[in-house]
Amino acid sequence: MSGGHANLLPVYVMADESGSMTKVMGQLNEGLRSLHEALLGEPMAAAKVRFSVLGFSETVLEHLRLADLRHAEEMPELKPRGRTSYGAAFGDLRQRIPADVDVLKAEGFTVHRPAVFFLSDGQPTDKGWLEVHRQLIDRNVTKGAPNIVACGIGDAQAATIRQVATRDEYGFIANAGTDVGASIARFCTALTKSIVESGRSLGSAQPELVVERPQGFRMAIDVV
């Protein structure tokens, strides 16, 4: 790498388009529009994101691919259709993400680990999705294996959502009885914040925290 053209974070929204989403689809589309508007007010954060919107049921539909949202006129509309195949969703990402990473790197970009925001309102209707999911997040198998933030609403079960999320703290489940529309709004807000705040974080493999006062310690009093 020679001082690439730019740093990029590929972001994928993988949203459930199964029939049961009919009632809340309007709110999800509204949430994506709000995300777009928020990013237009954060031009520097937006410059670092390439945004894909995908809908899944038995198959995956690509609504937006690697878009620079500063230049997008409007967000696509998701539409309910079919059943809830997690295997279709993760299988698509398994093929799509390495190809996208190659495309972006070939164009000279420095690519950060992709982020997938997964939203579902139901339990998967297919079997075998866990193995596809395992391959997708295995960094030895999938180039650019993503971090997955998973949000469950409606009939989605907490245990399932925890299996989808790549870290425990990346799994969210709407409490029973909460307004599903409000949950989707919160999901989109979290998505926006994650994109805007995708700066540096503390590494996971860390040396020890300092534990004791060193000999001869003196406070610096001219800074704070």
Partner: peptide, 21 residues
């Protein structure tokens, strides 16, 4: 933090008050 050949880069960092050797 950038290494030639890495497919993607990480934004994680080691920092004080962690105290590596």
């Amino acid at each position: 933090k950038l290494h030639t050949g890495d497919p993607v880069v990480s934004s994680a960092v080691t920092a004080l008050p962690r105290t590596p050797r």
